[in-house]
């Protein structure tokens, strides 16, 4: 479900079924990496919407967490978001990003980081881009189903 009034209504009616939150992490920069962050933003937006479409009934897609590329306390901020979600009965909190910086903090994020390099979509034909996104979505869905299955045991 998306973070819109209508879909959050749907969420509050079926809370017991939605136990997973997905937070895209998008870096911003005005310097040399400006274009790169734009590329990541584009890629993560499309990718997260596709994931949401496939798993609408169990995943709540949050608006992305944006931060400046040199921001010091971004890990703290993210933990705050995650804790808030956990306190509100979300058993699984996942982060989706293309920014390599987060890899360093992976341990602190308790293995819930999905890091996937951004495809420069602006250089691709629309059909090609769709195909590639589709494949990545399938791989990410596997991560979710794996986590859900293991929770059952």
């Amino acid at each position: 479900m998306r973070w819109t009034a209508k879909e959050l209504d749907m969420y509050s009616q079926s809370k017991e079924y939605v136990d997973t939150v997905l937070i895209p992490l998008v870096p911003l920069s005005f310097g040399g990496e400006m274009k790169q962050t734009g590329s990541m933003n584009e890629f993560l937006t499309i990718l997260s919407l596709e994931i949401e479409k496939q798993m609408k009934g169990r995943i709540l897609l949050m608006p992305s967490l944006q931060y400046l590329h040199n921001e010091k306390d971004k890990v703290e901020r993210l933990k705050h978001w995650a804790n808030e979600a956990k306190e509100n009965n979300f058993k699984h909190v996942f982060f989706l990003t293309s920014d390599y910086e987060w890899k360093k903090d992976e341990r602190e994020l308790e293995n819930h980081l999905i890091w996937i390099p951004a495809i420069p979509l602006e250089n691709l034909e629309i059909d090609q881009a769709r195909g590639m996104i589709g494949q990545q979505v399938l791989q990410i869905l596997d991560i979710f189903t794996y986590n859900w299955k293991n929770e059952k045991k």
Partner: peptide, 8 residues
Amino acid sequence: ICKHLGCT
């Protein structure tokens, strides 16, 4: 589209 909560 699943008739439960709309997954695929």
